[in-house]
């Protein structure tokens, strides 16, 4: 019987995806992903490994960045910029969620 991982993937840093799997998820070619790694917009867990793997938490930003670039007809070079901004937004949203939870009733 196939493992749950074969069907369900939590898109967080705990899980990892291969280069091919990331290409499938993001709708980007392996060459485009390699380009993103080369320009530092995307970081494999171990850049020196024979087979790159990535934290699955990058999938959401990557899918969104790819969608924005496709829909707005942006160059591939813009993808790296959009990706870094989206990741920054996601990090800030997480921080806001965390601070809101901590503040709770202490908020004015």
């Amino acid at each position: 019987m196939p493992a749950e991982r074969d069907f369900v993937l939590w898109l967080d840093a705990r899980e990892q995806v291969s280069l091919v799997e990331l290409s499938e998820c993001a709708g980007l070619s392996v060459a485009q992903l390699r380009e993103l790694v080369e320009c530092g917009a995307l970081a494999p867990a171990d850049p020196h490994a024979d087979e790159w793997v990535f934290g699955a938490d990058c999938v959401v930003s990557l899918r969104a960045a790819a969608r924005v670039c496709r829909d707005l007809e942006l160059e591939t070079a813009a993808l790296a910029l959009v990706l870094s901004y989206l990741e920054r937004i996601h990090r800030l949203e997480e921080e806001v969620r965390d601070l809101s939870a901590r503040l709770g009733g202490l908020r004015p």
């Binding site: 749950e4 074969d6 069907f7 369900v8 993937l9 939590w10 898109l11 967080d12 998820c25 999938v59 959401v60 949203e93 997480e94 969620r97």
Partner: peptide
């Protein structure tokens, strides 16, 4: 949805 979801988390259900 297996147990363990948190707010803002994403999940991929293959196929």
């Amino acid at each position: 949805i297996p147990k363990g979801a948190s707010d803002g988390q994403r999940l991929r259900l293959r196929g």
